[in-house]
Simulated scan of single mutants.
Amino acid sequence: MVMGWGVGMERWIIDYQVIWGDPADARTWAVLDEKLKVRYPHPCGVGLGILATAVDSGGHHTDEVYQFCRIRRWRNIFAIKGASKPGKPVIAQRPSMVDVTWKGQTERNGAELWFVGTDTAKDWIYNRYPVEDGPGALHFANDLPDDFFDQCVAERKVARYVKGFKRIEWVKGKAERNEALDLMVYNLAMAHYLGLNRYKEHDWARVRQALAQAGLFDEKPVQAERLALPVATQATQATPATQRPEPDPAPTPVVSPQPVARPIQRRSSTSGYLKRR
Score class of each variant (00 low, 15 high):
V46C: 04
G47C: 05
G47F: 02
L48C: 15
L48A: 15
L48V: 15
G49P: 03
G49F: 00
G49E: 09
G49Y: 01
I50D: 09
I50Q: 10
I50C: 14
L51H: 11
L51N: 08
L51W: 10
L51M: 14
A52E: 05
A52K: 09
A52V: 06
A52W: 02
A52M: 06
T53P: 02
T53H: 07
T53Q: 13
T53F: 11
T53Y: 08
A54D: 05
A54L: 04
A54V: 03
A54Y: 04
V55C: 07
V55S: 09
V55W: 10
V55Q: 03
V55L: 14
S57H: 01
S57I: 00
S57A: 15
S57N: 09
S57R: 10
G58A: 15
G58P: 08
G59W: 07
G59N: 02
G59I: 01
G59M: 03
G59V: 02
G59S: 03
G59T: 05
H60Q: 12
H60D: 08
H60G: 03
H60E: 05
H60F: 01
H60N: 12
H61F: 08
H61C: 02
H61W: 10
H61K: 10
T62M: 08
T62L: 03
T62E: 06
D63V: 11
D63H: 05
D63Y: 05
D63C: 07
D63S: 11
E64H: 09
V65C: 09
V65Q: 02
V65L: 07
V65K: 02
Y66D: 06
Q67M: 03
Q67P: 01
Q67Y: 07
Q67T: 12
F68T: 08
F68R: 12
F68E: 12
C69P: 04
C69Q: 04
C69N: 01
C69L: 06
C69H: 03
C69D: 08
R70D: 00
R70N: 00
R70H: 10
I71M: 01
I71N: 05
I71W: 06
I71Y: 13
I71K: 14
R72K: 08
R72C: 00
R72F: 10
R72V: 06
R73Y: 01
R73N: 06
R73K: 12
W74C: 01
W74Y: 13
W74V: 12
W74E: 13
W74A: 14
W74H: 11
R75M: 11
R75G: 01
N76H: 11
N76G: 00
N76M: 02
I77R: 11
I77K: 06
I77G: 07
F78V: 02
A79W: 08
A79M: 11
A79F: 09
I80N: 07
K81P: 03
K81E: 04
K81W: 14
